[in-house]
């Protein structure tokens, strides 16, 4: 089974985003960037499918292709995935911050070319917090989707996916090819070892331009402004539980 894993280069999850004074966006100058954490989980699962780790039979995945749409530096993100165990990479270079619809259309073009059996991606990018690309890609391909995966079992031409939903867990069987988006509990991604980082340097990363795909990526949304949220200021420390209860009663919340 060939697996395609889209990965996005985003602000590191430990960094607190700051809004630019002119309200045009978030200040990313000199900010640490990393692979979107959910995408690391997707890469890890694909690699486990290849290695036959956990409940996956060895060779469940035969080839793992990683694709990122973004600036030149997104090659570093792809390189990280290759060091984790993916086989080859593709960068679709774009300096514009593309909307999920445009990303989904480009990914559809990649799927048409690569013909994977499974697209495994993050449920959400932690910058835009859209939670949209996987579902949109599935619609454009007319493939089944299984979002928010906490467990994936491949077999019998299907992905049987246990999903983290409001209220608990739901299990679906999606006929392959399918799009599966991953949630936090699926696995704990590995750190690439030094030898694997070295090996990854020799793996191929193809670089293409957005124009090579002929997808309609015209923006549909105009960002009018980006502002800081209302701030909360620290309140007071109380000495003990009795004082707390009396404060809460005064505040009218008990």
């Amino acid at each position: 089974m060939k697996v395609l894993v889209p990965v996005k280069r985003v602000i590191d999850y430990n960094v607190k985003a700051r809004v630019k004074a002119d309200q045009t966006g978030v200040d990313l100058a000199n900010v640490k960037m990393s692979m979107n954490p959910f995408d690391e989980i997707a890469v890890e699962e694909a690699v486990r499918m290849k290695e036959g780790k956990e409940h996956h039979a060895a060779g469940t995945a035969t080839e793992i292709v990683v694709v990122s749409i973004g600036v030149t530096q997104a090659q570093e993100t792809i390189r990280t995935a290759l060091a984790m165990g993916a086989d080859r990479g593709l960068l679709i270079q774009s300096d514009a911050d593309l909307e999920p619809l445009a990303v989904a259309k480009l990914l559809k073009a990649v799927v048409d070319e690569e013909k994977p059996d499974l697209v495994l991606l993050g449920k959400q990018s932690i910058d835009g917090d859209n939670n949209a690309v996987g579902q949109m890609l599935a619609a454009l391909l007319d493939w089944p989707q299984a979002t928010f995966a906490g467990k994936i079992v491949i077999g019998g031409g299907k992905a049987t996916v246990t999903r983290e939903v409001d209220g608990g867990l739901q299990t679906l069987a999606a006929t392959l090819p399918a799009v599966v988006s991953v949630d936090l509990r699926l696995n704990t991604p590995r750190y690439a070892s030094l030898p694997n980082i070295m090996k990854a340097k020799k793996k191929e990363i193809a670089v293409k331009a957005v124009a090579d795909y002929g997808a309609d990526i015209a923006p549909r949304l105009t960002v009018k402004k980006v502002t800081a949220p209302p701030t909360r200021s620290a309140g007071i420390k109380v000495a003990d539980a009795a004082e707390l209860v009396s404060k809460l009663k005064t505040a009218g919340v008990l």
Binding site: P100, V226, A228, P229
Partner: peptide, 30 residues
């Protein structure tokens, strides 16, 4: 259509506010 996720304010028929970056920024989109 481009979906608009997690809207916290309806500004007008075509303009909405939504949190991004874990709520550390609010984006107004048309």
């Amino acid at each position: 259509v481009a979906p608009i996720s997690d809207v916290i304010e309806v500004v007008s028929n075509d303009t909405f506010v939504r949190p991004i970056y874990a709520g550390n920024a609010l984006e107004t989109v048309q």
